[in-house]
Design a binder for these strands. Structure first.
Lengths: 218, 218
DNA sequence: TCCCGTAGCGTACAGCGTAAGCGTTACGGT
DNA sequence: ACCGTAACGCTTACGCTGTACGCTACGGGA
């Protein structure tokens, strides 16, 4: 036995398995084998499989950077948050759905939420507007990353699911728009589309701020 | 034996189980018992469990209305899509994550995607802008609904997960913004926030359209 | 030296999805 | 009224899962 096991080593091995072979490949026995230990020994470091998954989420959250605001460009700072979140997702496509689906209440996650929200408040938004802006930006980012990662957008899906119909071939008559769209969506520069979408929201936000500043009612 | 089993009845029973007791409660044996049949008999109507889950997704997708555009108000029409999507999610909080995580390539799903995209094209957006707008609106809506449904947003989480820290009590000093925010987020009118977020995007989109129309460069 | 806390192991169990093959039922054509 | 046939449902069995329980081996104070 080379060196002692640790929660950290267990989590990293778990993430590596999921990255390489998908969530379905992550079993306690398999994970044990990977770190050179029987399955039950893992329970010394992790209370159960749920917690193991939470730990994987934690690892991914750690990869997200929320920049401290230096210059005053809060919009650019938020773009940075979004990019970093998306990069973390793309780096772990198999594991990322976990992040979107489990409560993010670890200290590290809260720290990031706090900092991202802080960017908006420091930009001068009032509480109400900040909440809307935060949830809109966060929802968009999460939804976008999740779509990319599950590869739903008419692109190549990973596993051997054949019985599903491939939009690139079938129903051109019935779905005129989609068949027009399919090839473009597959070939799209997702990063650029992401940036444009983010800009759309930021533009809307700036307009809202102006409306509030000039005091014109709804 | 009362009446014949059918794919439809199987799927509906499956969705009912998930709605009532969560995804974890959906097993083939349990589902069989629910419809008065042994587990293996289900395989007459569904090739495997994967397909069963796909069928549940299909059922939920069926609840989403994409209005045909009547008057010319495409923005309001899109708001309708978003509302309907969100309603479907809230009606099936336990099952909805499946919708966000599996490829939506069934005819019924494609029909809705096609119609929603068509709303934008008919509004006069060019292809490039439509793609950005579509993916932005769709990502926001999916992300928002998913967050509501997983109850992550610092609200009450369903199952007995105690070892996670409740943001309403703990780290006020370390996360000043969040602790300021927590109570508001929990008590927020999510529907209203959703509408505001949608408006933010639609406002940004209108601004973008004006910019394109007046021909001013980037 | 004793002792005990900790890491890891071995065994065991209930429950999972599903492959294979069985008998039974319901129905359309004659 | 019959029967061939296809659809339906059941039984048994297999390999896998997460994990409860009790055990051993060791390393560092007292």
């Amino acid at each position: 036995m080379k060196e002692r096991l640790s929660r950290q080593r267990v989590l990293e091995a778990a993430l590596a398995i999921v990255d390489a072979e998908g969530l379905g490949a992550l079993t306690m026995r398999r994970l044990g084998a990977e770190v050179g230990v029987e399955a039950m020994s893992l329970y010394r470091h992790v209370p159960n499989k749920e917690a193991l998954l939470d730990g994987i989420v934690e690892l991914i959250v750690l990869e997200i950077d929320v920049p401290a605001v230096d210059d005053g460009d809060w919009a650019e700072a938020w773009r940075g948050v979004g990019r970093s979140y998306r990069q973390a997702a793309l780096a772990h496509p198999n594991a990322f759905p976990l992040v979107t689906m489990r409560p993010l209440a670890t200290p590290e996650a809260l720290r990031r939420i706090d900092a991202a929200y802080d960017l908006l408040r420091r930009a001068g938004l009032d509480e109400q507007t900040s909440i809307v802006a935060f949830r809109t930006l966060a929802s968009f980012t999460r939804g976008f990353a999740l779509e990319e990662v599950t590869g739903r957008a008419l692109g190549a899906q990973a596993d051997g699911v054949e019985h599903r119909l491939d939009p690139r071939e079938l129903p051109a008559a019935e779905f005129p728009r989609i068949s027009e769209l399919a090839s473009r969506l597959v070939a799209a520069d997702h990063g650029a589309v992401f940036e444009s979408g983010l800009d759309l929201i930021l533009t809307g936000l700036r307009a809202e701020l102006e409306r509030l500043a000039t005091g014109s009612p709804a």
